[in-house]
């Protein structure tokens, strides 16, 4: 399928916060309470439309345990967006956000859009982190913020799509240099040459081979 851009996303956050479930809900529109542990990294992809343009999201779902960080660090390379997830029923997953953010900032390109996600809003009665706290954290660190439920699918689409919108805006503003693949954006093989962000000759070749 043709697309105008491909954005690479990475989903990060503590173990058990629902990263894989968010991905599954977004790509397959289903919730699977029982699933295998993510060892290393898993992948998902979905096409979305923003501003009339087809955009492919290539999503990297990473292992959350501390030991895996040395490996997952290398996955930030070339990511245009990151979903930083915590579990609203487990405060420790919220307090660890700072280290996750440090990691992400250090190993990604500076323009990477980070969406902070408080997941599991279906467990409202067991909430341990107030929505305001999440908002405050996001404000303080310049992140976008949403609360989601991978179980009920509440806000899941929005979380992924809003991140893409933000990235798209940055492209429009010229913040992202789309000719540099390290930014996590690739131009689709069928992209119209009349587009203002048309690939140059050499890049077109790259895009054809390097992306999907």
């Amino acid at each position: 399928m043709s697309y105008a851009y491909l954005f690479k996303y990475i989903i990060i956050g503590d173990t058990g916060v629902g990263k894989s479930c968010l991905l599954l809900q977004f790509t397959d529109k289903r919730f699977q309470p029982v699933h295998d542990l993510t060892i290393g990294v898993e992948f998902g992809a979905r096409m979305i439309t923003i501003d009339g343009k087809q955009i492919k999201l290539q999503i990297w779902d990473t292992a959350g345990q501390e030991s895996f960080r040395s490996i997952t660090r290398s996955y930030y390379r070339g990511a245009a967006g990151a979903l930083l997830v915590y579990d609203i029923t487990r405060r420790d997953t919220f307090t660890h956000l700072t280290t996750w953010l440090e990691d992400a900032r250090q190993h990604s390109n500076s323009n990477m859009v980070i969406m902070l996600i408080g997941n599991k809003t279906d467990l409202e009665s067991r909430r341990d982190v107030k929505k305001e706290e999440g908002e405050a954290f996001a404000r303080e660190h310049g992140l976008i913020f949403m609360e989601t439920s991978a179980k009920t699918a509440a806000n899941v689409e929005e979380a992924f799509i809003n991140t893409a919108k933000e990235i798209y805006e940055k492209i429009q503003e010229g913040v992202f240099d789309i000719n540099n693949e390290a930014n996590g954006i690739k131009i689709g093989p069928q992209h119209s040459p009349s587009s203002p962000h048309a690939p140059s000759g050499s890049l077109g070749q790259q895009a054809g081979g390097g992306c999907c």
């Binding site: 060892i39 290393g40 990294v41 490996i71 290398s74 070339g78 390097g210």
Partner: peptide
């Protein structure tokens, strides 16, 4: 190499 696939992506598990 061409597709930027390194062993850790598939062989870690």
């Amino acid at each position: 190499e061409q597709h930027e696939i390194v062993p850790s992506l598939y062989a870690a598990p």
